[in-house]
Design a protein around this nucleic acid. Sequence first.
DNA 1: AATTTAAGCGAACGTTCGTTAGTAAAAAAA
DNA 2: TTTTTTTACTAACGAACGTTCGCTTAAATT
Lengths: 183, 183
Amino acid sequence: MAGRLFSRRGYYGTSIRDIATALRLQGGSLYAHIAAKEELLWEIVGEAAQAFLSGLEPIVRSEQPPLEKLRQAVAAHLRVVTERQDAAVVFNHEWRALSPKRRQAVLALRDAYEGLFREILAEGQRAGVFRADLDVPLVTRFILTALNGVAVWYRPKGPLSPEQIAAAFVDWAARGLLADPKE
Amino acid sequence: MAGRLFSRRGYYGTSIRDIATALRLQGGSLYAHIAAKEELLWEIVGEAAQAFLSGLEPIVRSEQPPLEKLRQAVAAHLRVVTERQDAAVVFNHEWRALSPKRRQAVLALRDAYEGLFREILAEGQRAGVFRADLDVPLVTRFILTALNGVAVWYRPKGPLSPEQIAAAFVDWAARGLLADPKE
DNA sequence: AATTTAAGCGAACGTTCGTTAGTAAAAAAA
DNA sequence: TTTTTTTACTAACGAACGTTCGCTTAAATT
């Protein structure tokens, strides 16, 4: 419930009383369940980080062709993004509101995740499947930001399922826009 | 100055006194120059929207091959994103804090911009230069989110110039990851 | 049935918020 | 130089913030 509000109005834009009201409670009553407002944010952010990482790890460690790994990684990422949409938005946009120590922890997890993702591209390059002249860290960042953006506009009742979005993304990311790539 | 603070801590996370202090003023003194806090946000957001739109329009209307248009559009977008980094971040993340009327106006501008960008891809498809089986609105969204993400991590002293980032992006977006696209 | 535990209420706390108003200092115009 | 006009300061405003506390009610345990 806090996740939805944080994702829609931001952490600072959501008051304890807003959250309590959404739960049909009085402001103060929340403090029977939490110690501080930041605990709510921390819980959401941590849960999202965990979901992202635990979804990607087995894929990176598996033995499959690079393109197939990429396919699965994108699908896994978009699964988290669409199934835990609020948490994903909060994870991406509101981690700045955390205390310095926790903010640092989130950044470390995010970097670890980006590193895992990068491995897929690097491995594909070594295997000769992906082009050697690509800047892997840069392209990884492009890919992850594009995928995270889905958390902002995705609607469960929309015309595209998460799987369709994943398929369309990988198709474009792998083969590009050009009909004739020799151009 | 307000732009920097809004981009770093968010609109609600930045108080009038924060902005005044950064300007070596007392809190109340700001109100000799502005009518309300929201004016500051509105000014920044409007400026960014204007910069994006006025950069893209002449490119879309020009007579050039689709791939060249895309190249220039990406370069123009990244020019705004890197030269007015704070405004770009605020434009992308803080427009929710505006009053309903202004929020709607921003959304309309953003939609118009996205529509212009989409035209480039659609035109490329009609010309047979871009693949016909791509979901143009979807890919447009991917492209724009990836490019907007640059506003978050770009640092002027970093290893890559805006032009290099643009070139790397278009190279990937156009030709994809695969070394042999027949895969 | 009595007793402990948990959940929620409602008022209040100290602080910070955006904003206003009166006044003094500085700059510009006359 | 006097007179405006601008700029900033200080103090205060009411409202909203996160949080605490004593009390009541409901649930669970004995």
